[in-house]
Design a protein around this nucleic acid. Structure first.
Length: 432
RNA sequence: GUCCCCAUCGUCUAGCCUGGUCUAGGACAAGAGCUUUUCAAGCUCUCGACACCGGUUCAAAUCCGGUUGGGGACACCA
């Protein structure tokens, strides 16, 4: 039975890199019909925080990575000590006393070559002469990362250790301990790192890194997972949009790339748009409503869901993120619209009192207020005024929406309704 | 400094294992145009890469070696 694990440390939020490691472990487990185990590496009592743990679990669930078992290292200190004492008895480790502190247990590294056969990279060889003796149990009684990791992976029957590239140099140290303890050595697969846009380490400066931040920014979990997947694996046949169930079928750890990949927000946004435009509009409306409430564009228990649904439909194909909706469609909900100063300057610096006034009259005269009728009214007006349609369309759009971009004008007018359209246009009419 | 990993368009990648079908394919971004109602949607087109040097071979993006470049690790952090 394949057993893999994701072992986050609750000393910070779940970030892009961690999510990617979790993704490949989870994907591997599901593709092999094995188990995905979550292990919380909370041996650092000072830096580990409950709120980080909660955030990590919520983010993993949001991404859809359900786990089969969960363990906390802080509950297993006895197990680590037992194993360390075994090494002590067998002469593979020694103790060292530091002033003012307790006694540390240290593993004695003996000369040898260490080979690992990485599932992604092939054979990697190390010489133990480059490895110092390893502290197993610190003088405060807590285990070190490399030791707890080995004891846990072995006792939890982990068959495949899939983790970031940055752990390659930990691997020989850990193999030494596996051997000393007589444990079976698991398979290793080291994933390439994700770099920031400028090639360096992924940091706050190169964009938000916490998964919860992407959620807040309006990215869909499926889109984020899809993007992360593409960062070092390709489904083939030039496909980019792939749902997780299909990825489970096609995934093979051997196909994972060796090269570090730069994180690119533009592409993430594009993928997010692909998911957004294909999303079920009803479901999309339900996730958008809370965002509108938050922005106070609608009031709790006092909004027309069907109306919101029709507006969502209007914007769905062009949204980059969910947050874009509130920014782009605000004029459908706000009482006082914000006019973009640039737009005002460009399209409303001249007086359109006459044109707007006449257009309002045309709209008033309509028997039926629908998109076709509105367009016909507009077309007849520009004909009478011998104007080009765009010279009037843009000013009207800015007066109604405050923006230079948006859905088709006649749809905007229709969904805005006759009253609000009139009101916003007449605000621009100077009485003489 | 020592050890380790990596190297195809600006970015993500396909191809590499099993050399010829590669004047290297796709996507994002960028640029141009169309959509005579905008673009932040759609469509069309353009720009753009096998890091370098040597070797093996009839033939190398593909195999081998080196150089250069990038990244990572060297804690009683995880």
């Amino acid at each position: 039975m394949t057993r893999v694990r994701f072992a986050p440390s609750p000393t910070g939020n779940l970030h892009i890199g961690g999510a990617r490691t979790a993704l490949f472990n989870w994907l591997y487990a599901r593709s092999k019909k094995g188990k995905f185990i979550l292990r919380i590496e909370d041996t650092d009592k000072v830096r580990s925080k409950k709120e980080y743990l909660d955030e990590i679990l919520v983010s993993l669930k949001w991404l859809g990575f359900d786990w089969d078992e969960i363990y906390h290292q802080s509950e297993r200190f006895g197990i680590y000590r037992e194993h360390a004492e075994k090494l002590l008895r067998e002469g593979d480790a020694y103790t060292e006393k530091t002033e003012g502190r307790g006694e540390a247990i240290i593993y004695k590294v003996r000369p040898q070559k260490i080979k690992i056969n990485d599932l992604i990279r092939g054979e990697i060889e190390f010489d133990s002469e480059n490895i110092k003796d390893q502290v197993l149990i610190k003088s405060d009684g807590t285990p070190t990362y490399n030791f707890a990791c080995v004891v846990d992976d072995a006792t939890m029957d982990i068959t495949h250790v899939i983790r970031g590239d940055d752990h390659i140099s930990n691997t020989p140290k850990q193999i030494l301990i596996y051997q000393a303890l007589g444990f079976k050595i698991p398979e290793f697969a080291h994933l390439p790192l994700i770099l920031g846009a400028e090639g360096g380490r992924l940091s706050k400066r190169t964009g938000a890194t916490a998964i919860s931040d992407y959620r807040k920014m309006g990215y869909l979990a499926q889109a984020l997972v899809n993007y992360l997947l593409l960062l070092s694996w390709a489904p083939g046949e030039n496909r980019e949009i792939i749902d997780i169930d299909e990825a489970i079928k096609l995934f093979d750890i051997k196909d994972v790339n060796k090269t570090a990949a730069a994180f690119n927000l533009e592409k993430l946004k594009w993928i997010n748009n692909q998911y957004l435009k294909n999303a079920d509009t009803e479901a999309l409306t339900d996730v958008i409503i809370p965002l509108l409430l938050e922005k106070e564009l609608i009031e709790k228990d006092n909004f027309d869901r069907n109306y919101i649904l029709s507006i969502v439909k209007l914007f769905q194909a062009r949204l980059g993120t969910l947050a874009d909706f509130a920014d782009w469609a605000d004029f459908f909900f706000a009482k006082d619209i914000k006019i973009d100063p640039q737009a005002e300057k460009k399209f409303l610096s001249r007086d359109f009192s006459r044109e707007f006034g006449l257009f309002v009259q045309k709209l008033e005269a309509l028997d039926e207020f629908n998109i076709t009728a509105i367009e016909e009214a507009f077309r007849s007006l520009i004909k009478e005024l011998s104007m080009e349609s765009k010279t009037l369309i843009h000013p009207i759009r800015v007066a109604l929406t405050g923006k230079t971009v948006g859905p088709g004008l006649f749809e905007v007018i229709y969904y805005l309704g006759k009253e609000r359209t009139k009101e916003r246009l007449l605000q621009r009419v100077r009485r003489s």
